[in-house]
């Protein structure tokens, strides 16, 4: 084990996989000579050369389309989106082609490609550059949507993404890049998709989240413990496939659930999860499933308004208390 940042864990995964398999290559804007806006690809051009570390024009649809062709013919391309907001330009390539080619070909053609990059609110990135897309991509069959919250998961899940045969939307969070954590050194330690994890045990309420909201939820759980409220915190890790069995199991114990997501409430991941809980363990619920979400507005640029638009620890605490009838 080594203590790595989330950024270095992703970097390490890229290096290990490019060493392991010459078919792995990466392309994106400013990832070679400039070494990446978030320095994820630092040193890669020098190490692997311009055939495997490709600086592209600002043309996301072209990047993804090219990667789809490569993947169909057996390469394992990784496309870096400078932020996932830019991938909207490539939505047709991702949703209508990458997600569907195996299906269209009757299972004859795999799609071993990864589209990775940061998403979510940062500091004054404004309305176009602060969005979260897990619910958007999670809607479409044919995609895998990964939302790692820890350096270990970032490394292990990215390796699974690169080695797999499905198109993976790998959603990093820019605010987590500096976060440190223990990461396995074993180059063959991979993390599977569709396996949620209980990261804190508790008997009173179940908090469900993923990505950066997990950090928030754990901080809230620590504060709640000071008041004698023991929250069980579950990290979903992937939004598609979505493993809710540990959530149902937890709700059978706690009888209350709070789902935390960063972005807008309508039609969000929290709504899907809350509905699934209600469908599956209705008789176990002692309170409506609570949702903690961002405000239903385009992200403001002004810092004071931006802070009001995203969920904070105290929102999670308040939702937990509502679920416990203690507000």
């Amino acid at each position: 084990m080594s203590e790595l940042t989330y950024r270095d864990a992703i970097h390490r995964a890229l290096v290990e996989e490019m060493d392991r398999d010459p078919n792995v290559l990466i392309m994106g804007e400013d990832i070679g000579v400039y070494e990446g806006t978030f320095r994820i690809t630092a040193g890669l051009l020098k190490k692997y050369g311009a055939n495997r570390v490709i600086d592209t024009p600002i043309a996301e649809a072209g990047m993804v389309g090219t990667a789809i062709g490569m993947a169909m013919l057996g390469l394992r391309p990784i496309v870096e989106m400078m932020t996932f907001n830019f991938a909207l330009v490539a939505a047709d390539q991702i949703l209508n082609h990458a997600a569907k080619i195996r299906y269209f070909s009757g299972g004859q053609v795999d799609m071993p490609m990864v589209i990775r990059g940061p998403q979510g609110a940062g500091v004054q990135l404004s309305a176009q550059h602060s969005q979260s897309f897990e619910a958007f991509y999670g809607h479409f069959p044919g995609l895998i949507v990964a939302t790692p919250a820890t350096p270990a998961d970032a490394k292990g899940m990215l390796k699974s993404a690169i080695r797999g045969k499905d198109p993976v939307i790998f959603l990093e969070n820019a605010a987590l890049y500096g976060m440190k954590g223990e990461v396995p050194d074993d180059p063959d330690a991979v993390e599977p998709f569709g396996v949620s994890r209980v990261v804190r045990e508790g008997a009173h309420v179940t908090i469900v989240s993923y990505s950066r909201m997990l950090v928030l939820s754990l901080a809230a759980a620590a504060k709640l413990a000071e008041e004698g409220i023991e929250a069980e915190v579950i990290d979903l890790r992937t939004i598609r496939p979505l493993d809710l069995d540990p959530v149902y199991q937890s709700v059978r114990k706690t009888h209350r659930a709070v789902v935390v997501q960063e972005q807008w409430k309508p039609f969000g991941a929290a709504g899907e999860i809350a509905a699934s809980i209600t469908e599956t363990v209705f008789d176990e619920l002692d309170a409506p499933v609570e949702r903690v979400t961002g405000e239903d507005v385009p992200m403001p640029y002004a810092r004071n308004l931006e802070l009001l638009a995203v969920p904070h620890e105290e929102h999670v605490i308040a939702a937990v208390k509502r679920a416990l009838y203690r507000d």
Binding site: H255, F282, D283, E284, L285, D286, A287, Y325
Partner: peptide, 24 residues
């Protein structure tokens, strides 16, 4: 009544009409 309260009442043989509710 909450779903859990109904389930528990059924298991314990409690008539919910006799229970005072403390929730919203």
């Amino acid at each position: 009544s909450s779903p859990l309260a109904r389930k528990m009442a059924a298991q314990k043989g409690i008539d919910l009409a006799l229970v005072a509710g403390s929730g919203p």
